[in-house]
């Protein structure tokens, strides 16, 4: 008989669970209901935490100041203790940077196995999990008999659990953790230069800038500064998240990883050697839409592109709509229209 443990952790305030943790709770509840098996939730948090009401299962938690820092030694010890206390056969956890850093180590300590980047879990008799291989080029459904089986769920693949505010608060059982000697201290978080937080995972729209923005234009001019202003103006007006092609960010190599557009770094890069973000819509401008770039768009539902080149990759079945036009002119007008809307 299977038993499911959902591992979750506090957000940066320490007072609430992260959204991906709430998504893992939904996925776990769905799975345990389908299989008709027991379920528990494990929490890693520095101190008391406001858990959603109406959680229909046992909650165990580790807490202490040591868990305020996302760090391998402490987080691995915490998750190990929660698993040893619950002895689950299936462990679900969000693929946050915090849990991605440690969960394979935890699976190893428990004598278990792990699979990551899980996008869906199905199956009645057994458990089957979907994941992508070769950077989102091949979709596989996998299963394993080995237990405990750890599954790390990609963010945005499940709806977040919502509490019933009228339900009673849940009681939490504390689990003791023996901490190893600590050799690592988290000293802070660095935000991008100029404080321009351009990566917004929850945005409805991904705006992808390509190398065309900084290339010589048909009038013979390079208009990088104007490009930067148009892009930032659009991000401000639309709330979009900013992605980039590799060619554009690579232009800044040797300048501390920054592009000639100073607000872009390799973290904005989408594609084979970049990110594969999840947004309902994506708009590319001045980007050619080559395959190593477009595989980063796997989870973007609606796709449009603006390019001068009628033979660019986007026109070959990779986007829903491609505008063959000058992105400088189009985006200037888009910004104007958005500004007019916000004033009306």
């Amino acid at each position: 008989m299977e038993s499911v443990l959902i591992l979750t952790h506090a957000d940066e305030t320490g007072a609430a669970l992260t959204k991906p943790s709430l998504e893992a709770i939904s996925a776990g509840l769905e799975l345990s209901t389908r299989l008709g098996v027991s379920i528990a939730i494990g929490v890693v948090a520095p101190g008391p935490i406001a858990l959603p009401k109406s959680l229909p299962c046992a909650v165990v938690a580790v807490s202490g100041e040591a868990f305020a820092q996302p760090r391998y030694a402490t987080d691995a010890a915490a998750c190990e203790a929660l698993c040893r206390a619950q002895k689950p056969s299936i462990v679900l956890a969000p693929a946050s940077s915090r849990f991605t850093r440690v969960m394979a180590g935890v699976a190893h300590r428990l004598g278990g196995v792990i699979d990551t980047h899980i996008t869906a879990i199905r199956g009645h008799a057994g458990i089957e999990a979907s994941r992508w291989l070769y950077r989102q080029r091949i979709e596989a459904v996998i299963t394993r008999d080995a237990r405990p089986w750890f599954l790390l769920l990609d963010a945005g693949t499940h709806a977040a659990f919502t509490a019933d505010p009228s339900a009673p608060a849940v009681t939490i059982e504390k689990i003791h953790v023996d901490l190893p000697a600590l050799r690592t201290t988290v000293t802070g978080i660095e935000t991008p230069k100029q404080d321009a937080l351009t990566i917004r995972p929850d945005a409805k729209l991904l705006f992808v800038a390509g190398a065309g923005w900084t290339k010589k234009q048909p009038d013979g001019q390079v208009r990088a500064q104007e490009a930067g202003e148009l892009i930032l103006g659009f991000l401000r007006a639309s709330g979009a998240s900013l992605g980039s092609s590799k060619s554009l960010v690579d232009q800044g190599e040797g300048q501390g990883g920054n592009s000639v557009l100073p607000f872009l770094t390799h973290m904005n890069q989408v594609g084979q050697t970049g990110a594969t973000p999840r947004h309902p819509k994506g708009l590319a401008a001045c980007c050619h839409g080559e395959e190593p770039h477009v595989i980063g768009w796997r989870f973007i539902a609606e796709r449009r592109a603006i390019s001068l080149d009628p033979n660019c990759g986007w026109t070959r079945g990779k986007a829903d709509v491609v505008y063959i036009a000058d992105a400088f002119r189009v985006m200037a007008k888009v910004n104007e229209l958005l500004a007019a809307r916000s004033q009306s």
């Binding site: 996302p70 201290t185 802070g188 978080i189 660095e190 937080l197 995972p201 973290m267």
Partner: peptide
């Protein structure tokens, strides 16, 4: 280290 939201966590 890269963390969510295009930021880096700094550790010593």
């Amino acid at each position: 280290e890269r963390v969510e939201g295009g930021r880096h966590q700094v550790s010593v």
